[in-house]
């Protein structure tokens, strides 16, 4: 009875919370914002690069072999497996190449959900999801990626800096 009255009058519970928050305030205050040892959890993103895990799923990219040839043989597995149907492939032939060659490989990023099913289904390791995550753009066309014509950007990273402040410099 007496102790409960005392606990009502003197707010020990509030003191505990204040002590915890005060402790964190002191810790962050006494350390520098950009030191090696720090309590705060902020990543100052554009200035400090973000670390990504090796399996990070970014944008779809086609990779070439040592001769600079596209590895894709138009098996259409990725086109079939894609849940949102963002991949369109046209089968064709190229001189001096035995296997089929994609005359058109279109990837519409604005509908892509980055599930990596396409990479998983690919039996020839010809596509990967790279580590690029700065994918915002101002024009709809910038989201369309392809191998032919204007959009010859399936092989490279999207030019960073076109969209991101990390490129200033």
């Amino acid at each position: 009875m007496a102790s409960s009255l005392l606990r009502t009058l003197i707010p020990f519970d509030i003191y505990g919370g204040m002590k915890l928050t005060g402790k964190y305030f002191g810790k962050v205050l006494l350390q520098s914002n950009r030191g090696t040892k720090r309590t705060h959890i902020v990543v100052e993103y554009p200035e400090t690069p973000v670390t990504l895990m090796p399996r990070y799923r970014g944008r779809l990219q086609m990779i070439k072999d040592e001769q600079g040839e596209i590895k894709c043989v138009c098996c259409l597995a990725c086109e079939k497996i894609c849940p949102t149907q963002v991949i369109t492939i046209e089968k064709g032939k190229k001189e001096g190449r035995k296997t089929p060659y994609p005359t058109r490989y279109d990837f519409e990023m604005e509908r892509c959900i980055f599930c990596e099913f396409c990479v998983e289904s690919c039996g020839f390791d010809s596509i990967i999801l790279n580590h690029q995550f700065e994918l915002a753009a101002y024009n709809r066309e910038d989201f369309s990626h392809g191998t032919e014509g204007v959009f010859q950007n399936m092989y490279d990273l999207t030019p960073v800096g076109h969209y991101s402040v990390a490129s200033e410099e």
């Binding site: 928050t21 005060g22 964190y24 305030f25 962050v28 205050l29 914002n33 309590t39 705060h40 959890i41 902020v42 100052e44 554009p46 200035e47 402040v165 200033e168 410099e169």
Partner: peptide
């Protein structure tokens, strides 16, 4: 600081500030 964040740092010394 209580919430282990940094708060407002962007007006100067941030985005367009001295980088790296």
């Amino acid at each position: 600081y209580v919430q282990v964040r940094l708060g407002a740092t962007r007006v100067a010394g941030g985005l367009w500030g001295a980088q790296q």
